[in-house]
Design a protein around this nucleic acid. Sequence first.
DNA 1: CAAATTAACTTGCAATATGCAAGTGATATT
DNA 2: AATATCACTTGCATATTGCAAGTTAATTTG
Lengths: 154, 154
Amino acid sequence: MSIALERFGDRWSLLIIRDLMVRGFHTFKQFQESGEGIASNVLTDRLRRLKKWGIISAETETGDARRVNYRLTEKGIDLAPVMLELLIWGSRHEAAGLPCAVTENMAKNREQVLKEVRLRWQNRDRTPVLPAYSPGNFFSGNKRTKGARIPSNP
Amino acid sequence: MSIALERFGDRWSLLIIRDLMVRGFHTFKQFQESGEGIASNVLTDRLRRLKKWGIISAETETGDARRVNYRLTEKGIDLAPVMLELLIWGSRHEAAGLPCAVTENMAKNREQVLKEVRLRWQNRDRTPVLPAYSPGNFFSGNKRTKGARIPSNP
DNA sequence: CAAATTAACTTGCAATATGCAAGTGATATT
DNA sequence: AATATCACTTGCATATTGCAAGTTAATTTG
């Protein structure tokens, strides 16, 4: 069986990766309080597994040794195309929080979007890709389109 | 939380979709005997859920009322881009059964590959995308490249 | 500097999901 | 008519997840 499918065959792993990728999450607490409802013991386990698999890294913050900063590795950020396709699919086929116009625009400019996401990763940019969050949505889950800088037809 | 991620947040759903998409599976029995080890009660449940969500359809075969034919819907086949990106990611970052040359070729010809997959779906073509199966691989899991008609640089 | 707070986990136990082996019932084949 | 096949069910053991309440180490506060 495909290793890739085994990796993400649970309720939380992909969600954690998405939150790291586009919502700017980087601490244990943020995941816990995100409202998604992951139990702390499971969160611990998932972060550990993702780290073991080289998808995320964990390093204690310089200046506050209580905090641990989680971050996608190169391998992790390489999942961006998967996430983007899932976003587009969800927007087309499931009730979505983002207006279809926005996601269809993303679909037309996949390379652009992915370039932008990777740049944010390189720059350690922690602002959410879309500013706020509301349920039912994929990327950051907000209906606002303002601030979603990503796709503007070239 | 994203509906798309909720849909596939279990061990088997994506695997079933992949098997329908590229391995030519279409019966309960095939899934059971595929060696992936899904329990029959869970398989029943997953097929039911996927049907409920409109991702697959189920119809009893004309001519043999015992058989049920499972098939991806339009919504289901639209997951092909997600699957393809997962395949490419897995090939780059996890031990893969397919030679990287093949998957990188697919990565260069995504549109081609997707067109081919959709055509197979339209034609109800049940031959596996890649002829045989070996573990550790994503699409059909075979190391053979012969018969993988999909990517040939244009 | 002692007390309170914070962040990242652990622990114990209940609830849920999954795995397994053995059915069942409706066709179809021999 | 007997046997086999196919798509499920059922009952129960095991594993995973969810929940609430700790624990530990590191800051912050008064």
